[in-house]
């Protein structure tokens, strides 16, 4: 065990293969292995998304969502967005999944029907819209002449130091942009998250607690400890 750990930590950290062969950027984007990984993770993300839409069991739907997000994170990694892939795993497959699971546990109710039986007109309109969009997408795939730029492999990165494509979407470069050009949105998003936290607490709190004045020193006060729910 310790020997394995020592072996792992003794490995060089720098990706020398990529640094000395910038043309690998093209090769690893077009090779059979890349294609295999793309199809596997595309299937995982689309299958998970279909799971979300079709499952009656809510926990199964959440697990499908997690699988879909993991597949999407892998696809981000293929696009050299390594930092975003990690953030995707942490935020979506971690935090938001836990949030959904908690709410499902609070509700603890099986769903009656997976698909709405009422509102035939709305259902028909929705089905028509979906069919139209799927048809347009299929036409795009079949009929439209695809420009060469779309089927050829992702081009080589062109920026100073492009020999290391891993650094492009890494923490440093994304952080430079986030705290440079994106500084105001970053600060705005922190205020938005604060407002969302306060709003979520305000919305989800039981309403009639406001009417009863709380006395935290009184152990018999029904509003203090869980009796009011």
């Amino acid at each position: 065990m310790i020997a394995t750990l020592a072996f792992l930590f003794a490995q060089p950290v720098t990706a020398t293969v990529i640094k000395h062969a910038p043309h690998l950027d093209t090769i690893e984007s077009t090779g059979k292995g890349m294609a295999l990984f793309f199809w596997v993770f595309a299937a995982v993300s689309v299958g998970g998304a279909l799971f979300v839409v079709t499952r009656r069991n809510l926990i199964a739907a959440v697990m499908g969502m997690v699988g879909s997000f993991i597949g999407i994170a892998a696809v981000y990694m293929m696009l050299y967005a390594s930092f975003l892939a990690v953030v995707q795993m942490l935020v979506y497959a971690g935090a938001i999944m836990v949030l959904f699971v908690f709410v499902i546990m609070i509700l603890n109710r099986p769903e009656d029907e997976p698909v709405a039986p009422s509102g035939r007109v709305g259902q028909g309109l929705g089905a028509l819209a979906i069919l139209y969009l799927v048809g347009r997408l299929a036409m795009l795939l079949i009929h439209v002449h695809v420009p060469a730029a779309a089927v050829t492999a992702p081009a080589m990165l062109t920026y100073p130091g492009a020999a290391d494509p891993v650094a492009w979407g890494g923490v440093k470069s994304v952080g430079m942009d986030l705290f440079g050009a994106g500084l105001f949105p970053f600060e705005a998003i922190s205020i938005l998250l604060l407002v969302a936290v306060v709003g979520a607490i305000a919305i989800a709190r039981p309403l009639h607690e406001d009417a009863v004045p709380k006395d935290p020193n009184n152990p018999n006060d029904p509003a203090v400890e869980g009796h009011s729910v």
Binding site: A81, V91, V103, L107, D177, L178, I189, A196, A200, I201
Partner: peptide, 27 residues
Amino acid sequence: LSAHTFALIVIGVAAAEASVGLAIVVA
């Protein structure tokens, strides 16, 4: 890379939306 920043902001907005939406569901 501004697109990556944009995507990060979108993830933050999605987290805020999920928390408020789930609070509304509970209410």
